[in-house]
Amino acid sequence: MATILESLLGSCANKLKDIITNEAILILGVEEELAELLRRVELIRCCIYDAEKRRTKELAVNNWLGQLRDVIYDVDEMLDMARCKGSKLLPDHPSSSSSKLAACKCLSISSCFCYIGSRRDVAVQIRILNKKIENISKDKIFLTLNSSTQPTGKGSTSKLIRSSNLVEPNLVGKEIIHSSRKLVDLILAHKESKSYKLAIVGTGGVGKTTLAQKIYNDQKVKRSFRQQAWVCVSQDYSEVTLLKEVLRNIGVHHEQGETIAELQRKVAETINGKSFLLVLDDVWYYHSS
């Protein structure tokens, strides 16, 4: 059963893999630092399932997961910042003052300082986050976790922790409270509709996932929907993978090699006649219809 934090870690790892070879990152020269960050994220990701199983019974584990969640949000925000700063140094960017920004050679003094300053800012942020994740991985809680993967769906799923059971982050501020309440009311107002779609859009790092998690965990929402599923989409995805994730979230077993049509039929049969809330996190593209 996929959890929100597990999805966040997966999304973060995928984003790191994608961005390391991005031109906007290569021009900053921080790919080695990002590769180290990716290695640490992948290391922690291997043990996240064991931590999720223990969080409801062990306060220390729950606190450790809270620290991890906060750092992952910071990593996501840093990646967007790095991409933005690097893009401005590319030759074809409107704000670029040179067609040869691969190095300071042949650049104006102002462009050279811009390059050095951007690289320094990003490198410092990566170094800070690497240190935070290193400390998390050295914590005695992490050292007690077992490296394991989730069950494939065979056998009982009653012991799996649903993402709706996650302890939500401590969201503060009148704006976030007002927004979450407004969106909860909007969702519940359309509950009887055959289908209703709601999008939370914005630049990376502004808190879209955090807001969605607060709505997902809202008690009124939990009482109103018989089935809930949280699926992380990310950039590289397939319909088969998404359908399998939905089935895992709602506790339905699927066989290897099942077609899209077979998986769709299983989802349809399971949610038929039931109120069902599906959250698709980290969606990069959409097709208007």
Rank of each mutant, 00 (worst) to 15 (best):
R265P: 00
E262N: 11
Q219K: 12
R120L: 12
L143K: 15
E255D: 14
V201F: 02
T203Y: 04
G86P: 06
V221T: 06
L5F: 04
G117A: 06
N272D: 15
D92M: 05
R181I: 11
A212C: 07
I187D: 00
I109G: 00
Y73D: 12
W284S: 07
L28K: 04
I250K: 01
N249M: 06
C104G: 15
G202W: 08
F142D: 10
T21C: 04
A13T: 09
V233T: 09
H93L: 06
D92Y: 07
I136H: 03
E269Y: 05
E36W: 01
Y196Q: 04
G173V: 06
L90H: 01
S118C: 14
S96E: 14
G117S: 11
R54I: 13
N135A: 09
R83A: 12
Y196K: 01
V206R: 00
A103P: 01
A268T: 12
M1W: 08
D76M: 04
V283G: 04
A103H: 08
K274R: 13
E6H: 12
M78G: 03
S98V: 07
S193C: 09
E77A: 15
L242K: 03
F276W: 05
R248S: 14
Y73K: 11
D50I: 03
I4Q: 03
T259H: 02
T203C: 02
I187P: 02
S147R: 13
C47S: 15
V184W: 02
T259W: 00
Y286G: 08
F276A: 02
Q228W: 02
Y49F: 13
T210L: 01
V41G: 00
P151I: 08
P151V: 09
I187K: 01
I44M: 11
Y286C: 15
V124E: 07
A51M: 02
S96W: 03
K182S: 14
Y196M: 07
K132S: 10
D76K: 06
A82E: 07
A82Q: 05
H93E: 11
V231M: 00
D74S: 13
H254L: 08
G155K: 03
E175K: 11
V279S: 01
E258Y: 00
T56C: 02
